[in-house]
Amino acid sequence: MTDRKTELAANLATVEERISAACAAAGRKREEVTLIVVTKTYPASDVRLLAELGVRHVAENRDQEAAPKAAECADLPLIWHFVGQLQTNKVRSVCSYADVVQSVDRKRLVDALSGAAVGAARELGVLIQVALDVDSGERGQRGGVGPDGVGALAEAVAAADGLRLDGLMTVAPLAGPYADQPRAAFGRLMEISSGLRVAHPAANMVSAGMSSDLEEAVAAGATHVRVGTAVLGVRPRLR
């Protein structure tokens, strides 16, 4: 356990150096960027060690793994983000532990999250996932709604009981005009965010960038980066 904590501490220090350097290069203050550690496929014991090392934001993408892990770590001062594709039949469970759902991409999911949040007497933060591999309001290859669909979905979230519109999220696309161009993709997300904030000034969270492209995300203006492998190591294969 001590060796694992040492390993995680070293990895966190390296990621911290990367974020700090990226902020300096972009003329931004370090405190403008929040690190979210993606703990999917790793045990609750790692989450506990990360908390001891000062991590406050963690993310998961599969409810069947996240729910028991969050329950095991319920005593820790953590903010839980759900970042995976979410089916409506999992919404009640996710709403029981997640503080923010970053992958909202359709009205039906907004309605389901609203009902679950009201039922649990909670306010749930919501990010609209933007798909940059499509032009219309259709869903993208890796989830998300196209740029043209963001406005209507944002209005639905803002009007929904129990939900708080926090901002936008994207995953660097594998296809379309921004394939293999994370800097350009994240720049486009910032343009969409600027438009969103005209109508919803408080929706200023921009979640973009992962282990391989966090520098590009920070340069573009992301407020949150989602880093897994660079902190926890190469992920074990899911069975």
Score class of each variant (00 low, 15 high):
A160W: 03
A26Q: 01
A199Q: 07
E16G: 14
P68G: 10
H200N: 03
A112R: 06
A220C: 07
P147L: 10
Q181N: 11
H57D: 14
L124A: 14
V198F: 01
A112W: 09
A26E: 07
M210V: 08
T41N: 11
L127T: 12
A21L: 06
L214R: 00
P201C: 08
G146N: 11
S20E: 15
V104M: 10
G143I: 12
M190D: 03
A71T: 13
L174C: 05
A222E: 01
G167C: 02
G119L: 08
D46H: 06
P68T: 13
A222G: 06
K29E: 15
A175T: 15
G151N: 08
L8S: 02
L49Y: 02
G228E: 01
G144A: 11
P77W: 09
D180S: 13
I79R: 10
S45Q: 10
P177S: 09
T229Y: 04
G209C: 01
T223A: 08
D75A: 13
K69G: 09
E138V: 15
E65P: 11
V171N: 03
V206A: 02
H81A: 09
R142G: 02
N61R: 06
Q141M: 12
S93W: 02
A21V: 08
Y42C: 04
P201H: 05
V91A: 09
Y42G: 02
H81W: 11
A44H: 04
G151D: 13
V145A: 10
D99I: 09
E31I: 10
T39K: 00
V110L: 06
P147V: 12
G209R: 00
D99K: 04
L86R: 03
R188E: 15
V231L: 01
L153Q: 04
R239L: 13
K90F: 14
H200G: 05
L127C: 14
A185L: 02
R122A: 13
G137D: 14
E65T: 13
G167S: 06
T223S: 13
D75L: 07
G176M: 05
L196P: 04
R237L: 14
N11G: 03
F186R: 01
N61D: 14
D111K: 05
P182D: 03
A112F: 08
V206R: 00
R18G: 15
D135I: 10
A208W: 01
R48N: 03
V37T: 08
T229F: 04
A121E: 15
V104L: 12
L174D: 14
I36Q: 03
H224T: 09
P201I: 12
R56I: 14
G84Y: 05
T14C: 01
G27I: 13
P236F: 09
R30G: 10
G195K: 02
V134F: 05
V110E: 08
N204T: 10
D135Y: 08
V55F: 00
L12W: 02
D75W: 03
A203V: 12
R226K: 03
A22G: 04
V145L: 07
R108V: 15
A199M: 01
S96M: 07
P43N: 10
A51C: 14
V157K: 00
A222S: 14
V206H: 01
V227I: 15
R122W: 12
A185K: 00
